[in-house]
Simulated scan of single mutants.
Amino acid sequence: MAYAAAQATIGDSEFDRDTAVVPRPGEPGVYDADLSAGWTIIQAVNGGYLLGVIGRALQQALPHPDPFTVTAHYLTASQPGPATIRTETVRAGRTLSTGQASLFQTDAEGREVERMRVMAAYGDLDALPDDVRTTAAVPPIPPYEECFGADAAPAGGGAIAGSTAIIQRLDLRLDPATAGWAVGAPSGKGDMRGWLGLADGRDHDPLSLLLTVDALPPTAFDLGIKGWVPTVELTVHIRCRPAPGPLRVAITTRNLAGGFLEEDAQVWDSEDRLVAQSRQLARALLS
């Protein structure tokens, strides 16, 4: 399998640099960040990448290292450039700590605008017991080399990724069964599946798992709906530390009503373990 070459390591990669936060001197719990244009969809910054930025700030602010559950409400679209993250420790327990954080940017009139608000619980994934009982099944995705990358589409169609910058940061291979929308033939089932790594070969960790649940094209494309699908709310559960190698991601929607749809995601690692789950509510722009 021709996965992306491991040119980067955890802690020394594009994702790590672009999600870096700097504590503000004299203001405990406040961090400065620079949102990279490399993780945008059209002009808005991707919601999963934003979770990675805020997740890193909470990782520094809380006594536990790993996100267990993170819920984000997206209030206004974030733009590339400077941002401020204000965190608060709600409770610090023995096995879990809970915190909240908000990301702010300054608008064209010089006013501070809250872009998103997050509530999260952190713990230590390495301290969890090994007992696993699940009825969840590994998604039926074809081998990596049989899936479509950003520079190819079925039947000679256009590029799967479109012109969004984030696709250059990813090693994404879509299941052909969920890529028909790229040539004008969506299945109508509301599914999206594929292999996902980072373009520089960096292995995944709990923080980058926050990105993976929102990194594939939206399921609305498989329903025949084109255009941006902005997230309203996103909740992610991190279940265990992922093994090295690309991930298998499966996302589905079961109900589009009133201009909103839900997306349920499962993320599986190279050892066939369910490492992350999520649900989000998103707007489907129908006109």
Rank of each mutant, 00 (worst) to 15 (best):
E146T: 09
Y74V: 01
A159L: 15
K226D: 05
Y74M: 01
S287I: 00
R202K: 11
G162K: 09
L211Q: 03
D175A: 08
A92P: 07
D12H: 15
Y3K: 10
R279V: 01
V275I: 10
K189L: 15
K189D: 05
Q60N: 12
G99V: 09
D214T: 06
S97E: 13
L256Y: 09
W181R: 01
D269N: 08
R202N: 06
E233P: 03
Q79I: 04
I251L: 04
A127N: 05
E109L: 11
R24G: 00
Y122I: 10
G93D: 13
P28S: 10
S287A: 13
T134R: 14
G190L: 03
T84E: 15
G190A: 07
C240N: 13
P65A: 13
A4L: 01
T40N: 10
A37T: 03
D175R: 08
V22Q: 14
M119H: 09
A2R: 14
M1F: 14
P23E: 07
R91C: 08
G52C: 12
R248M: 13
D205A: 09
A37P: 10
G81H: 14
A44V: 02
T71W: 03
A282F: 01
T76D: 05
P242S: 13
A177W: 00
L125M: 10
R283W: 05
A77P: 07
S163C: 06
R17E: 15
G188F: 02
G29N: 02
S287T: 13
V138P: 00
D34R: 15
A83T: 08
L125P: 05
P217I: 05
T9V: 15
V70S: 11
G180Y: 00
R193W: 02
I141A: 04
D171R: 01
L256P: 08
Y49N: 06
M119D: 11
Y3A: 11
I225T: 08
Q277Y: 09
R248H: 02
R24V: 11
S278R: 04
V249Q: 08
